[in-house]
Amino acid sequence: MKKDQQRLKFLEPAVRRVFCAVLDAHPEIVDRLDDYAASRIRIDVRDAPFCMVMQVSKREIGVYRRDAKVKSDARIGGSFMTLLKLAEGGGDGDSLFFSRDIEISGDTEAVVALRNALDDSDMNIVRESLAAFGVLGLPLRICYRVFQDMRPLVAGMFAP
């Protein structure tokens, strides 16, 4: 499959908007990343049909089909909620790695730098999304809250 066919362009404007809003709200992320801001990092969301590849120094983020072959320096994989927790500092990266909730490959330094930069940033994806979309961010917030409230219920339904 050609690279362009692997790209989910219709998702990119919204994702890029949130990505840039996060970087604008937290310039300390770029500062902490230092040279690693130039690394291309692939985020594999295990329970979603897509992955993302971002390059902080260029403020670029691409959205691709889950199994797309895209050039990257490093890769982090995990479920949506785990990655969200990691990004917002709600989960300890080492513990999530020990328990295999996240997996990494490629340039370990770049991943460690990103993890540390995010952990320091006090980022809140909902707050940043609201900032990115203005009033249009409200539905996002509602979806996120509903998803969080429903999570234990759904997990309970599938418990052994």
């Binding site: 927790k85 500092g89 080492d94 513990s95 993890r115 540390n116 952990d119």
Partner: peptide
């Protein structure tokens, strides 16, 4: 010191 703030807090 290399751990996240979730570890520190807990």
């Amino acid at each position: 010191r290399q751990r996240g703030r979730a570890y520190t807090e807990a």
